[in-house]
């Protein structure tokens, strides 16, 4: 069993209206050291071991559904979970 953490964010080249709104709010609270805010999604998947390498399966799922690669980037971390 694997525990997989997937992070999906808008690509650098794509304006993030939500992130911009949060950045302005932080500036209005005098956190002037903030130069950029990007808002994304965080997904946790539990994946059973199969014949296919888990990296390959996760990458495919990200490309096909979890991220829209036209506007989003993704990265993931895989941990092998110890049986309870």
């Amino acid at each position: 069993m694997y525990k997989v953490k997937v992070f999906v964010t808008l690509r650098e080249s794509v304006l993030d209206p939500q992130g911009n709104a949060v950045k302005h709010s932080l500036h209005s609270m005098n956190y002037n050291e903030v130069s950029d805010v990007r808002i994304g999604k965080y997904l946790e998947l539990s994946i059973e071991k199969s014949e296919r390498p888990v990296e390959e399966v996760v990458k495919e799922m990200c490309e096909r559904l979890l991220a829209n690669v036209v506007i989003e980037d993704y990265r993931f971390e895989i941990e092998e979970a110890v049986a309870q």
């Binding site: 808008l10 794509v14 304006l15 209206p17 709104a21 829209n68 506007i71």
Partner: peptide, 16 residues
């Protein structure tokens, strides 16, 4: 767009 029948993608409205 998601199905790939048309190119591109949608973002949140600029005004949110």
């Amino acid at each position: 767009l998601e199905a790939g029948l048309l190119p591109g993608a949608m973002r949140r409205n600029e005004s949110l």
